[in-house]
Amino acid sequence: MAVLTVAALGVVGFLGYQAAATAPDHPTQARPGSHSAQHKKKDKDQTESKQKPTALPAGSGTGVRVVYAVGDRRVWLVGSDGKATHTFAVGPSPASPDPGTYAVTSRNKGGVGSDGVQVEHVVVFHSQGGVVFGFSAAVDGSMPDPNARKRTGAVRESRADGAAMWEFAQVDTKVVVVP
């Protein structure tokens, strides 16, 4: 009798587990078409778009250049053949440069960014309204706070991407900023 009771409890427990796993509000498995399933799909799409390189924006110039798409928070390093040799996500700060074509004006191996963070591989390309815009990598790996009150022009990259930018973008290299 005890064996039968234990077996019955096991079956009831298993059925309860299955019912919970297929319930529409279960956090680990949502039914297709439910709000939770749509939210998960959106999260998955956003994650994949951050991981997959995207196409070079139309109207982003010609020749050797750095392309910075402000809205996409993405940079492309473009070779003389017009093809991107490297693309990566960036973290912008509160201020953004106006769309246009600029050129690298200076480079600095390291220092302290306008937000007070230790940075390396600083590539400056524009100054507008008292804000200096440049690409850099924070030594501690942090990204700027886009909602900060202080208007800074840091466009932060990972340290690996900062090293790639440093090698690619010499003084006078064209920088095209698109919306």
Rank of each mutant, 00 (worst) to 15 (best):
V3S: 04
L4N: 05
A7T: 13
V11N: 05
V12Q: 01
G13D: 00
Y17Q: 03
A20D: 05
A21V: 13
A21W: 15
A21N: 10
A30C: 04
G33Q: 02
H39W: 04
K40W: 13
K40V: 08
K40D: 11
K41M: 15
E48M: 09
E48C: 01
E48A: 15
K52E: 14
A55G: 14
G59L: 10
T62I: 06
Y68C: 07
R73E: 02
L77M: 08
L77E: 05
G82I: 05
K83Y: 07
T85Q: 15
T85I: 11
H86K: 09
H86T: 15
T87C: 05
A89Y: 05
A95P: 09
A95Y: 10
A95W: 09
S96Y: 05
T101Q: 08
T101D: 03
Y102P: 01
T105Y: 07
G110F: 13
G116P: 03
V117L: 07
V117M: 12
V122N: 10
V122M: 05
H126M: 13
H126K: 15
G129W: 02
G129F: 02
V131I: 09
V132L: 07
G141Y: 01
S142I: 01
M143G: 00
A154R: 14
V155C: 03
S158K: 05
A160K: 10
G162M: 14
G162A: 12
F168L: 12
K174S: 08
V175C: 06
